[in-house]
Amino acid sequence: MLVYDAYFPWALDVAKDHNILAAAYFVSSCAYVASFYPMFLEEFGSDDQHPVVAAESVPGLLVELPSREEMERYAPKCAQSSSSDDKPDTGKKPLHPVYQMVVSSITTLHLADFVLFNSFDHLEHQVVKWMTNLWRVKTVGPLLPSAYLDKRIESDVNYCVKPYKPNNEACMSWLNAKQVASVVYVSFGSVAKLSVEQISEIAKALKQIPSSFLWIVREAEQEKLPNDFITETSEKGLVMSWCPQLDVLAHEAVGCFITHCGWNSVIEATSFGVPMLGMPQFMDHFLDAHFLEKVWGVGIRVKADEKNFVTCDEIKRGLEKIIYGERGNKIKENATKWKELAKEAVGEGGSSDNSTGEIIKWLASS
């Protein structure tokens, strides 16, 4: 069976041409893909393969979906909107090319033998239930090495391609010297680029809170840090260009994660029971941030202005609520609950374990 990135649907054509079974795999949440279905119907219309399926019953899914104009603002800055000069005037603004890619990926999902997600049934139960009306959906996550979750394979510790080389020893030695839940971990992933002004606001907030912090600032971004920040905060903070994120999130010293809300980061933090302060940057980050706060209750999404700028006071306020406030106790309780459910999903007899077994049995009988 060919497992292909769902955003490259041409791979399904290749599989069908060679009589190979194929499974589409999404690197985003079930909710994010489902949220594009109304837009897909608007662009391509409905038919027997793409029926109109009401989504009003899915909690949180369509309540806060952005308009097309807002989605333009949420798209990566490197991708420009498509020009309509060579297209007929339909009176409808063309989709941003990134969103066009997502919408187009939906067109052939009904032809895939399976549609796989790095999620688990309990986490997105209502959305998964809704999606099964359309496609042969299977949740198979969290797709983390066994040694970190169910521990059925202790030697299974490798995880994805590392875009940058982390200094594992220095990072873990520093964490080992910290008290339980005393560290704020900050990382905006391998792609997001923050402005000098935004990095300055984060730096101010980290300076002002009592907690220690581990801040991942990629080498290309470190010139944006305030002058002398690293020296002035050396007693309470550690700034690194990259780190082994799974090991960091799994460490007992980490009590909060300031994240851009990319799906990998969200599913990882959820799997380890780490509360999150969400600062979404683009695309699926905003829906992920909405779910982590409003649906799963494992964190807080900061309030940003119309340019998606977040002040020092807002960051500090969110951290104080999570680390010291009454709301933080409930967030920590929810985070622990989802951590156990994540382990259950990949453990023997769990939903994701069963999904994988069903796929294997289906392949064996095909």
Rank of each mutant, 00 (worst) to 15 (best):
S352C: 01
P166E: 11
E197R: 02
L61C: 01
M39V: 12
L206Q: 07
Q100V: 01
G91D: 09
S234G: 00
A203H: 05
D5K: 05
A34T: 13
F188R: 07
E201T: 12
L238N: 10
A147P: 03
A192G: 09
Q49G: 11
S200N: 10
Y99I: 01
P226D: 07
I331M: 05
K294V: 02
A34Y: 13
C243F: 05
L2N: 10
D284I: 11
Q198D: 13
F8Q: 08
K343F: 08
K16W: 08
P76R: 01
L62P: 05
T107P: 00
V137T: 08
G60Y: 02
I315T: 07
P163R: 13
S119L: 04
F286N: 05
E268T: 11
C312Y: 08
V302Y: 10
Q80L: 14
Y159T: 01
F26M: 01
Q281E: 10
L143G: 00
D228V: 04
E358I: 01
T336Q: 09
C256N: 05
G350N: 05
I209F: 09
R301L: 03
E306M: 06
K92W: 00
I331L: 08
W215N: 00
E201Y: 10
L214I: 02
L111R: 15
A6P: 00
E72T: 04
F213A: 05
F282W: 15
K337F: 14
M283E: 05
I323Q: 14
Q100S: 09
G262Q: 10
F114A: 12
D228Q: 09
K337Y: 14
V140E: 03
H50T: 15
G60L: 01
N158L: 11
K77F: 08
